[in-house]
Every structure is written in structure tokens, then in C-alpha cells.
Design a protein around this nucleic acid. Sequence first.
RNA 1: CCGGGUGUUGCGCAGUUGGUAGCGCGCUUGCUUUGGGAGCAAGAGGCCGAGCGUUCGAGUCGCUCCACUCGGACCA
Length: 479
Amino acid sequence: MAKNKKQVKAITAMSKDFAQWYTDICLKAELVDYASVKGFMIMRPYGYAIWENMVNIMDGEFKKTGHQNVAMPLLIPESLLKKEGELVNGFAPEVAWVTMGGESKLEERLCVRPTSETMFCDHWAHVLHSWRELPMLYNQWCSVVRWEKTTRPFLRSREFWWQEGHTIHETAAEAEAETEQQLWCYANFCKDALAIPVIPGRKTDKEKFAGAEATYTVEAMMKDGKALQSATSHFFGDKFSRAYDVTFTGRDNTLQYPFQTSWGSTTRLIGAVIMTHGDDNGLVLPPPIAPIQVVVIPVAQHKEGVLDAAYSLEQRIKALGLRVKTDDSEQSNGWKYAEYEMKGVPLRVEIGPKDMEKGQCVIARRDTGEKYFVPLAELEEKVQSLLKEVHENLYESAKKRLEENTFAFTKVEDVKAAMEQHTCFAKTMWCGDEACEIAMKELAGVSSRCMPFEQEQIGDVCPVCGKPAKKMVVWGVAY
RNA sequence: CCGGGUGUUGCGCAGUUGGUAGCGCGCUUGCUUUGGGAGCAAGAGGCCGAGCGUUCGAGUCGCUCCACUCGGACCA
């Protein structure tokens, strides 16, 4: 009989060291490996499968609203990047440059794209002629490079994978509607695919994207109380169009500048999933993005008929259109249980000789650890309903945590005191002055996350300067 | 960029006052096991992060790099 002692070291407890816990999961759930260049990451098959599921769902949503995928070049000539001043200033400190082509020095150095606004604009300047061609609703799935100082898997790496949507429209109103539509697309994706509740809102001028007229965001709260910007959507007005000379002939036969948007979400979302749902046993994945949604474990698999019974369950679950795997390897059961818990598989189905006698199987859910004895005839029904329950429970738990760790304050000292006790979200009024925003960082250690669409009246004055308040802001400690 | 930590086999580590490298896990093979990280046996696997010094002799001492990592500042 096996000893009860765990033979493989568990991951660091979340309460002991949250950052180490996060890194442990990334490595031990086999999501990533470190690459040979600092700050670059290798997405391993299991990690990439999660990303692929995200991509497929999101891409489908984009296409429903008429967006088309394109592929832009990796490199941007310096002169092209420089045409829009704010964007250059925003990204200059963190771009990587290509200066050699083979053995010879390039005439002009080339920047590895940190984002592709410039190339989309340059392209549109070539192809756009008439208002009849608008809107142009483009999206690109690619990786970009930003030479970050400190790096962490998924959260901040020098190369990361993402989608960047870029659109141009005939009118400002249309572009603004697009900006908002895509933000809600992200908010819904976070809820429906990732079981992550978010606070949608607008960024302050200090926090907005370089060159944007308005930036919108969905902010999520991680289990350590810190904030993670999970996706953004920008309205550019006609700023870039003018800088890059993108024009079209309007309905009135005058030359006009189109209005532009861009919106993006990244592999950082995987980090959000880890830190929203994970626990001390490892990753916990919401079913829509889980590479394996159900794992079948044959117990005492050498015994007559057990493996066949397991394969039969696998086939029935597969027929439901679910991603299922039978682990018929020689590892012990305990090892398999721990392994698939580490990997966050939402449901585990066990079948062994005792179950076969009783015409049942055992289903264990990852989120709560509960086990159910399920008559074989009810397998399909139970698997489907449990997957749904797991997703709902993950979302509701995260939502409860978000609500219970968000507080309204009218004094800066109270924000500071709350943050010192435990990192959380603080809601206060704000006068709109950037000086007060900076003061908030200095006095309470928080930055503005967003001005939520859902505004509340917490008071009448700005807690920093005492002047009349314009907006309610959510503050937090950002990743 | 600023601070802290760590570099020894695939991973995690030990290595005494300097004397020519060891343990656990994993891996390979075989047998026995299997309802919460199994057992026994036999194997394979090392430029001790890099360079330069000190020394008869360096994993160990000194200097200089480099990488990774954590925390700041900056960003998605």
C-alpha cells in the first residue's frame, strides 16, 4: 500500500508568497518555459492550447461584427514610426531596433513593432479612396515586442502575443460606437469565456494610450487584490489620419480624414485566469478555454474491462463536442489526480471495478473538490450541467471577491489605511485634475484604474484638493 | 534603470579549514503494484554560469562580467 506522503513537492502556497505561487503554476502546469533571451517566453503546448481557445472564441466574436483579419509586417521604418509624435514618445523607451541586414548596415534602422497603428495608417493612406470603402474593420493576430525592464510570464514579457483591432470610419460617432462595442466585446468575453468579472470604464488622461483621444479599459481584480488591465479600446479621432495623411473623398466630394479606433487584448489574459481562479493545488480553468475539459481516470486499469469502460466514457463525452482525454498511463491514481488538478482540468471522471459493479462513475469538480457518484446512464447530462456550474461558480466567486474588496472612501488617509491593511480597490470622487491623481499615488500608493461607466455619487468633492468632484474613479495597485 | 536573492546532472538541493563532486526527485530497463502524488532492483546522466587572478592545487578565496529571479520605478 502506498504511503500517504506526497512524493512531489507542491507549489508555493498563495498565502506564503503570491508572486512565487504564480510563477510555480506557470512552470509546473507546463504553460511556459523561459527562453534563452531575457524576458522572452516559450508557450508550451498546454499554455498555447489555452491561448488558442481564447483566440478561437474571440476571433469568432470579432467576425460576427464584420471584422477581417490581416497581417502587417514585423518591422517599421523609423521615419514611419516618427510621424505621430505622442505615439513615438510613448513607445520610444521600449522599442527594439534592427540595424543590420545580413552583413551590411541598414540605411534606416527598423523598429520591431511594439504596436501597428503606424503600419495600418500607412497602408490605408495607399488603399483608401472613397467613403464607399468605409468602414475598414481590420484585426491582426500577432506578437509584438516591447523592451520591458522587468519581466514575468504572461504579465509582462518582452514579446507577447495579442490581437490588435484597427478600424477607420467615416464619422467620429461611428468610430466612437466601434470603440465602445469592442470594449463590451472584451467585457463579455471575460465573463463568458474566462469567468472573470471586470469593471469597464474610461482611463484618465494620465493613463490613456499614447496618441489616443480616449482610452477605455476593462479592469479585473486578482486574488491578491491587485488590478490587472485586461483589455483596452481606444478612440483616436482623426489624429493619426492627419499625421499619416489618410484621406478619402466624402459624400460631398471633399477630401476628408477618417476617424480611427484600435483595441487589443493579449496573452496577459492567461495571467488573469491564473490569478483569478487558481488555488494552492494549481491552475483552475474555466471550461470554455480549458484544453482538456474532462479527464477520464481508469482506476486499477490492469483489471479486466476497466480500460474499455474508461474509453467508452471518453467516447460518450467526446460525442458531446467536449475536449476529453483518458489518462491510461502507468502513473498511480494519486499522481494523476494531483497532475490534472495542477493543470486546472474542470472535471475528472473516475471509473474502477467497484463503479463498474454498481453501474456508476465518480465525477470530481476542480473548483470545489466535490465528488459525485453518477449512474452511467446520466453521464452526459451530469457532465454538461457540472461544466456549466463550474463556470458559474468561478464567475460568482470572483465577483463576490471583487465586490467584497472594493470600498468607497471620501478621505485620502482612509484609502491609504485600507491599502496598508490589504490591497484592494478604492472608489473615490475626483476633480479631474492630474495633480490630484499624482498626489493619490504619492499619498496612498494607488493609481487610477478607470472611471467606471457605472458611476456612483460617493461625495461632492475631490478627497485630495477639496474642489468639486467631476467623476468617480476606481483606484488600485496595478500589475 | 535602482535594490535584494540565486547560478553545481532534466528539476530541487548539499558540498566542512581549498585536496579533483554527492543526495533526492525525474529519466531508462525489469518485476511487483494501482479508489489521493506506489515499492524493490539494476542503469544512464557533470566545462560546478563565464572570464581573469591567488595557489602546488579552486565548486570552495578575490575581482570583473553574464543570466535568471523577486521587489521598486515604467508599461499591456
